[in-house]
Computed example of a mutant assay.
Amino acid sequence: MARSGLGEFLRSRRERITPTDVGLPAGRRRRTPGLRREEVAQLAFISTEYYARLEQARGPSPSREVLAGLARALRLSDAERVHLHHLAGTPPGPPPGPPRDVRPSILDLVQRLPLAAAGVMSAIYEVLAWNDLAAALMEDFSAVPPRDRNLARRAFLGPHSDGRRLFGVSDAGEFAHSVAVGLRAAVARYPDSPEVTGLVDELLAGSDEFAGLWSSGDIDVPRPLRKTFQHPMVGPVTVNCDVLDVPDRDQHVVIYTADPGSSSEEALRLLSVVGTQRMDVSS
Rank of each mutant, 00 (worst) to 15 (best):
G97A: 09
P159Y: 07
R81V: 00
L199V: 10
A2Q: 14
Y50P: 01
E139H: 05
F210S: 00
G217R: 01
S264P: 10
Q56C: 06
P114Q: 11
P92E: 10
L128N: 05
D148E: 15
A205Y: 11
A57R: 08
R184P: 06
R16K: 15
L70F: 13
R16P: 01
Q111K: 15
P94N: 05
T20F: 14
R278T: 12
D132M: 07
R31H: 14
G97F: 07
L6R: 02
V243E: 08
G119K: 14
S161V: 14
D108T: 13
L113Q: 01
V120Y: 15
R184C: 09
E80N: 09
T197M: 03
R14P: 06
S4N: 04
L183F: 01
Y51Q: 00
R36K: 06
D192S: 13
A68E: 12
T276M: 02
F141M: 09
R58C: 03
L70P: 03
R184D: 07
R226C: 02
P96T: 01
G173N: 15
F141A: 02
D21W: 03
P146S: 08
V40F: 07
A134K: 00
D140I: 06
A152M: 08
V254T: 14
M138C: 12
A57H: 02
F45L: 14
L151I: 02
D259H: 09
G198Y: 05
S272N: 10
V254K: 14
S263Q: 14
Y125N: 09
L67D: 00
A136C: 00
P191G: 02
L113P: 06
P224S: 04
T20Q: 08
V181L: 09
L271C: 08
M279F: 05
G89W: 01
H85N: 10
Y50H: 10
N150L: 03
P232S: 10
L35Y: 03
V281H: 11
W130D: 00
G69R: 00
R11V: 06
E209K: 13
P104Q: 07
L24Q: 11
R100G: 01
P95N: 12
S4I: 03
V246N: 10
G168M: 00
W130K: 00
P114G: 12
V273C: 08
R30C: 08
Y256G: 00
F45C: 15
P60E: 13
G261D: 02
A143T: 11
A155Y: 04
L54W: 04
Y125Q: 11
W214R: 07
H85K: 01
R269H: 14
V254C: 09
R249V: 05
M138Q: 14
P98H: 03
R269N: 05
L6T: 10
R249A: 13
H85W: 04
Q111T: 07
R3K: 14
P62S: 12
L35A: 00
R153W: 15
Q111Y: 02
R30T: 04
G119N: 11
S272G: 10
D162P: 08
E266Q: 13
V196A: 03
A267R: 11
A129G: 02
E174N: 03
M279N: 09
P146K: 04
S77V: 12
V221W: 01
Q277W: 15
S12M: 05
L76R: 13
F167R: 11
F45I: 13
R154T: 10
G23V: 11
D218A: 07
A116F: 14
